[in-house]
Design a binder for these strands. Structure first.
Lengths: 363, 363
DNA sequence: GTATTGTGTGCATAAAGTTGCATAAAAGCA
DNA sequence: TGCTTTTATGCAACTTTATGCACACAATAC
């Protein structure tokens, strides 16, 4: 019978003493980070779970915790106040939470192009250098190296999906649910040939890939075929600039696609505008949907889209960080919040004509 | 004939003392959560209900909340205690949480084929009928009708993804992360032509679709093409029984697929066995991976797979329910927990031969 | 009443985990 | 180089946890 997994087993395998292993789990100072890393890694592999001691006696220190909020964006583009940016609501939710729970939050913007904590925009944050934070909130995607470095120092919560080798706590919208709401609506209206379109971004755009994968999943669930020709700018070989993608979408629409699911609102507005310029009307000729719930441009119709609950994401993010800082519920979690479908004016019933006929159907 | 169900019976079946069983039901501290999990699980299967007989004494402190735990499964398949089933760890985590927070949890098994709360296996749960619960935990997928009915009455947390029109709180493994870990490992070993296989289940198997969508996403991220011919039993039109799927996988392997990602461990074991019977060796000729982390059959090699943290899922689920019952953080959340990659003996480097040549490559 | 059955709990104990102190190795420093 | 300081780890003593034994108590049976 397999040996029971306990600290002794880990100690034996790594040729260290039981004491060392114990100290790793109890977060004692004076343990070589390398050793600690080995221990945690093996522990995970063996499935050892270090359970917090039952009787939570007199914990809860009273000094208010300090947290840092890092926003990975150019200061210029962030400061623009012309339209309500998503970030605004995120921060609102976050500070709402910190106020309610009597926490201190320091907000800083950092340069997206910098890759280590010693680079200027990080170095100039004194409180970070002095390790005075009990946790960090990351807003928008960060370079993987930064996430990993921070993760070793303090609890980290990211407010969008981070793609990283090490597990990261994160709070995000439920992309699957949003796409499912959209596709079910389209399906109810009789759409069967539904395409998916996105722009090409750098490698940070996990959300676009995630929404595409949700599209694949939900199409399958609805019993609809995914025609690779109707999926634009997702495959590794596709590298269309927006105009090319729009043109391609127009072509595919002439071949019978009756609805386009775009990975983001701004893409959808771009597509609608392009269609308009080429005499294709939304939603009369083709339906278009987005994802985000940003405010619509003046010229555009109200978009049918999934609205991301930014405010709540901020709130829940704060709460999760507080939990982590108190060492409760340690391993990485990914919290996805529900979103709502906003019924706009850009979807209509599937046009029976285009669903069955060829290139000449719309012109 | 069937013995009367009492604590002694449970104790005997689990080879522990009756004292231990008693302590489980009375929420004593100092009981191994794993043991408690086993006890509760078996109790549910046997239909034992510990209804506190002595209410007279002044022993109740601040009237603890009562929660129901419903397990949607056949009692027979659930009762077997031979090997450590996933459910056991789920319950263990759940009861650990309820012990720590002084909650009462009642566990019941219900019949998966019943679709409304008035059906027998629900009707016979008196405390449910009397609306005495402050919340319900659902284990395994339930019929949508049941989920919706319960959702109207009390806070509900599901311990696997539920596919439902109304938003449902749920705690699950991060399927995307698990598949990503597996695919990155395969990619590191030089695999490029990687297939995906699943069995066909009823419409409850959201996890299979979700894992497939994760496969699509991660393949794309790695810059690998998804060849529809190497994706088995996902499209609406595919309805292969396991043997057919295995045969198809064998054929595709001869055409150059070097690794198969299966949606679940038992599928992977089936595939490996089939390959073996047809002279294809794992991992020498082809790599195979799973998902779940169940214990391996005796005949099989240790599978490379993503291990689901059942224990933690139970814990976090309990916590989420408690939050909901106290009206905190209302809107539906989907919490996904990180999983770990278990390195087994079923993946190896991509065989350079088969990756480049045709049907004759393996024989 | 006394026997019987079922359940809760104090106490003992082995196994597992933690920690004070000593010490070896590494790093500063003149 | 040789001396001090720091850091990381082992040893062994100590603490905590999980569970069985045995008895106490209550409800029912006879």
């Amino acid at each position: 019978m397999a040996k029971r997994v306990n600290q002794q087993l880990i100690a034996d395998k790594l040729q260290v003493s039981r004491a060392t292993v114990s100290r790793c789990f109890t977060n004692h100072p004076g343990i070589n980070p390398e050793t600690r890393g080995k221990v945690f890694k093996l522990a995970a592999a063996l499935g050892y779970n270090h359970l917090e001691p039952r009787t939570g006696k007199g914990r809860r220190k009273s000094s208010p915790n300090r947290y840092g909020v890092l926003i990975c964006t150019d200061v210029e583009s962030y400061e623009s106040t012309d339209y309500q940016s998503p970030g605004e609501n995120l921060i609102a939710g976050l500070s709402e939470f910190s106020q309610l729970n009597n926490l201190l939050m320091e907000i800083h913007c950092v340069d997206p192009s910098e890759k280590t904590l010693t680079d200027p925009s990080y170095a100039k944050i004194e409180t970070l250098g002095r390790r005075e934070w009990d946790g960090v909130v990351l807003v928008y995607p960060f370079p993987e190296t930064i996430v990993d470095e921070l993760n070793l120092q303090v609890p980290v919560v990211s407010l969008v999906e981070q793609y990283s080798g090490t597990p990261v706590n994160c709070v995000d919208v439920d992309h699957h649910r949003g796409i499912a709401l959209i596709l079910r609506r389209l399906s109810d209206l009789g759409h069967k040939r539904i395409g998916f379109m996105t722009h090409r971004y750098g490698f940070d755009a996990n959300w676009a890939l995630r929404r595409h994968s949700a599209y694949v999943e939900e199409m399958t669930r609805l019993g609809l075929m995914v025609d690779p020709a109707n999926v634009l700018n997702v495959r590794p070989t596709d590298r269309l600039v927006p105009e090319e993608a729009y043109a391609k979408a127009l072509e595919r629409t002439r071949y019978g696609v009756t609805a386009w699911v775009c990975a983001a609102d701004h893409q959808a507005y771009g597509l609608i505008s392009f269609f308009q310029q080429h005499g294709v009307k939304t939603p009369a000729d083709v339906s278009v949907t987005g994802f985000d719930g940003i405010e619509k441009p003046d010229w555009a119709p109200e978009l049918t889209t999934a609205v991301i609950p930014y405010y709540e994401i901020g709130q829940i993010g704060g709460r999760r960080l507080e939990d982590l800082a108190q060492k409760r519920f340690g391993s990485a979690q990914h919290v996805m919040l529900d979103c709502t479908l906003r019924e706009g004016e850009t979807v209509g019933p599937a046009t029976s004509g285009s669903a069955t006929s060829g290139p000449a159907a719309i012109n």
